[in-house]
């Protein structure tokens, strides 16, 4: 039995199933991070004072550059497939994976720096929300890396069997990845700068 519209597009909605599915998933993610940003606003408004300059702006800025670059390589990994350039696709997808790993390494240095000073999440409301937001964002990075690793490794076989479906899956992975980038675009000023 085949599920209709897994690859081909349903005429009246103009969509394949996966495209709508991933966007709905991202919609729920918006609400997840929305709740945490709302928490941030309420805690900050209720605080007697809010710390400034507790985080390293250079490290945060470097991570922003890394994630933005990874978004470019991710969209190129998909565009290469559309142009039938398998070698380039591999290159860009692996590059995205490596950039994601670099992000986490950078994050590890930030975390260990704080913890070495005894400034864990228990230390203040600011650090509590900082560790929670960046930790959850970091888990999303790890999730994205697992999916990418799958498509670099065993998932790559699908390209030969069904090129369109493989390109779709890379597109959906990309949508998720750009969303993770998009969250960071807000996290960086909110936590590091303001």
């Amino acid at each position: 039995m085949n599920i209709p519209y897994t690859v081909e597009i349903r005429p009246d909605t103009g969509l394949a199933n996966g495209k709508l599915g991933i966007w709905l998933f991202l919609a729920s993610e918006v609400m997840l991070f929305g709740a945490l940003f709302s928490t941030y606003i309420i805690l900050r408004n209720g605080a007697a004072e809010w710390p400034h300059g507790e985080l390293s702006v250079p490290l945060g800025a470097i991570n922003t550059v890394i994630l933005i670059s990874s978004s470019v390589t991710m969209v190129m990994a998909w565009a290469s497939l559309k142009m039938n350039d398998w070698a380039k696709h591999r290159l860009y997808l692996i590059a995205t994976f490596v950039l994601a790993a670099l992000f986490l390494v950078n994050k590890y240095f930030e975390y260990s720096d704080h913890l070495a000073k005894g400034e864990g999440p228990w230390h203040s409301t600011f650090l509590a929300i900082y560790f929670t937001l960046t930790g959850l964002h970091g888990l999303h990075i790890v999730g994205g890396m697992i999916v990418m690793a799958y498509f670099i490794g065993p998932g790559a076989k699908l390209w030969r069997a069904n090129a369109d479906q493989f390109a779709n899956r890379i597109e959906y992975t990309g949508l998720y990845w750009h969303f993770v980038d998009l969250v960071w675009i807000f996290l960086f000023p909110v936590l590091y700068l303001l």
């Binding site: 909605t13 103009g14 969509l15 966007w23 919609a27 978004s71 991710m74 990309g174 750009h178 980038d181």
Partner: peptide, 19 residues
């Protein structure tokens, strides 16, 4: 990011609606 990388500048109405 949303408009270009995620192709939101040119999407279908169901996705616009949900968003």
């Amino acid at each position: 990011v949303a408009a270009v990388f995620m192709h939101l500048s040119d999407e279908k109405k169901w996705i616009y609606g949900a968003l």
